[in-house]
Amino acid sequence: MIHFKDVSFAYKEGKWAVRHINFTVNKGEFVSIIGGNGSGKSTIARLSDGLLLPQEGSVFVDEINSRAKKDEFFIKEKVGIVFQNPDNQFVGTTVEEDIAFGLENIGVERVEAKARIEQISSLLGIDKYLHGSPSYLSGGEKQKVAIASVLVMQPDYLVMDEITALLDPVSRKEVLNLVHSIAENKNIGVLYITHITEEVIKSDKVLVLHKGEKIKEGAPAVILQDMKLLRSAGVASLPSVIISEDLRKHGIISASFVDEEDLIGSLCSN
């Protein structure tokens, strides 16, 4: 379990980037954080991996405090993090090399490393690129390599910091689906950070972040229907919700729909 207990963090004194944050991510759970630019999303990502340490409150990973110096590696092995720009997270000159980098750091021997890399790369469908340079892949493929190079370290939790923000909509969907299927199959806890509303639909729970504070936490269906809340957090509402709210106000339908099919179904049945 990743556990944020009343966490506050400031890059500059007196200017809180995040304030009084509380939440948990259990193993096998898919938790999304949604918010606009400057809401503190990336800060939370870095706090959950021990890359930043909170000034107030504590971050625990499986009961270990991220401040405990001797357990620093424990946290980095347990929590894998993927960032927004894949070009700035590659170390190796080939894909294989890059996936191996983390394993070399945590002392995995060659034979095991090789087996793990083969297994992960075929799982993510990037085995055909192993000997090529990551520079020449498309954005979506690059992010798959970045995910593979974290996943190969066999973390229990994955933190995804706006990993689709620079991708086109088609690869965006592909990468998101991939993360969902990995989380399910490997029983990994995911903290998925995004500013794109439709990406949180399939989460177990959603946190809405605004100006460094958690303004709401709940099931996606509840959060996504609250247009006022989303607007104040600077994120878009789903078209299906915009339509159904407008129709509900005029008494044409009685409930709001997150799912397009449900909305169309209810409109076309009567």
Binding site: P239, S240, I242, I243, D246, L247, H250, I252, L267
Partner: peptide
């Protein structure tokens, strides 16, 4: 836009 759909439906 979504509102064009809902105004048609209305």
């Amino acid at each position: 836009t979504p509102l064009e759909i809902s105004s048609y439906l209305k």
